[in-house]
């Protein structure tokens, strides 16, 4: 499942484009139960990533992921910056240069644990963990690309009826119910973009 330079470049571009193109939708979701900046935040972060794309693609996959993570931490801000940034950084730290599928399962598990530690949060609280955790479970269970992508979309949708107990939406209490979590939506977009690229380029 190794990625050559072209594949790495495609992957990063696909990730960036997926959230940049949906920035307005993400902001709308965050206006409903947050403070209306999630789309702006993710866009700013991934535009910064795009700005260094050639240099990023020159790196090995793990180094590239760490660099993306650091860029996101230093550019996104808000709650999503440290969380999404940590995910990429830890993924990079945990992956070998030429990962097998088992390596990907283990590394995403570690990255999710790091997100939980950083956010002092768990799945079930209406946050991006409600996408990351079930998607990782499908990955671990051997699900194919289509199954992973489908779960990402559905998991984001499953946050709609949830009561938020973490993140800004938790201030709303019961009123957080009935709206999709913006961070879950952006996570599902990123996963969807990654899966499509990896399926073609790395035979996921």
């Amino acid at each position: 499942m190794s990625l050559n330079r072209t594949a790495r470049e495609k992957l990063v571009r696909a990730l960036a484009v997926s959230v940049i193109e949906h920035a307005d939708e993400l902001t709308s979701l965050d206006q409903a139960i947050g403070d209306g900046d999630h789309g702006l935040n993710m866009k700013r972060g991934f535009e910064a990533v795009l700005a260094t794309l050639p240099a990023l693609a020159d790196k090995s996959t793990p180094e590239m992921l760490k660099a993306i993570g650091m860029t996101l931490v230093m550019k996104v801000g808000g709650a999503s910056g440290p969380l999404v940034g940590t995910f990429f950084m830890e993924l990079g730290k945990a992956l070998p240069e030429e990962p097998a599928r088992a390596d990907l399962v283990a590394a995403t598990g570690k990255a999710i644990d790091a997100v939980k530690a950083r956010g002092r949060s768990e799945a079930g609280q209406k946050t991006l963990l409600d996408v990351l955790v079930p998607v990782q479970a499908i990955l671990a269970a051997g699900g194919d690309a289509a199954a992973i992508a489908a779960e990402a979309t559905e998991a984001a949708e499953r946050t709609t009826p949830m009561l938020a107990t973490r993140g800004r939406a938790s201030f709303l209490g019961e009123r957080s119910i009935g709206h999709m979590d913006p961070g879950s939506r952006s996570a599902s977009l990123l996963i969807g973009a990654a899966v499509v690229t990896l399926e073609f380029e790395a035979d996921l």
Binding site: D37, N41, R44, K75, G77, G81
Partner: peptide
């Protein structure tokens, strides 16, 4: 100062 309504970044 972070961006509008967005926490500043660690740097």
């Amino acid at each position: 100062p972070g961006q509008v309504f967005t926490s500043p970044t660690p740097d």
